[in-house]
Amino acid sequence: MRFEAPETVEAAVSLMAGEPGEARALAGGTDLLVQLKSGRVAPDLIVDLKRIPSMTAITQEDGGFRIGGAVPAAEMLEHDALTAAWPGICEAAYLVGSTQVMGRASLAGNLCTSSPAADTVPAMVAAGAMVRIVGPDGARDVACEDVPSGVQKNALKKGEVVDSIFLPARPARASDAYLRFIPRTEMDIAVVGCGISITRAADDTIAEAKVALGAVAITVQVVADAAKAIIGTRLDDAALDALAAACSAACKPINDKRGTIEFRTDVAGVLARRAAKIAYDRAGDAA
């Protein structure tokens, strides 16, 4: 097994593309190292991205934020402008593991692990995040929901890495929220996760909304009907009921060790209601 730590994106891409065997990018390593240790993966090449300056930077761009492909959650949480604009994404990042894990774990790693239960993914999807993928053929921007394609499968091709994740500029009175259900209080994996982003109109009705669910299907689910159910409302009880029903209807879960189909379906609706209320309240407070 070979380990490389290049200092430019181009060098990283050429190493990844040039490896005849299996190559893996390494961001925080909080998934990859666990998988290596358990013997689940045994790549021939590991390319550490943390020596690449742009990969570890958060920059403001067109009123939005570009978050490098190896930025640890802890740095996001210390970025005041980012936490103010995207409290939902930041609270999802804050849920990833412990203080120690957050010192390393990245959004890109959470996305590329391609676990249906990854916490930051529904939050990023709800936010309309765009993922910049770079590879031997150059760069492309892909909507976050189009990156995961199955359990431990994603849209990245041989030689490609996630360069950065872009969170677009927000209008006034917009905010987001993420909630997950776990049986414990922390250090656990989401049984259901729900990210919601909301923009309020001047009359306090919801002008825009996006709702995404995690852990209820093999990939993150964008629930258009759930967004429709609340757009134009002030999140009254009928709207919340319709939102919950749409979320429950969108679930395609399995019965497994983490929860039954009925349980996940019920709880998806419950979390959607709760997350929508939080996002709506935050949007009211947001400048």
Binding site: P183, G259, T260, E262, F263, D266, V267
Partner: peptide
């Protein structure tokens, strides 16, 4: 008495 079992009991179904 895990959440799926308690919720099933609350909803009157078997977990």
């Amino acid at each position: 008495m895990s959440p799926p079992k308690v919720l099933a009991a609350l909803k009157g179904r078997t977990a």
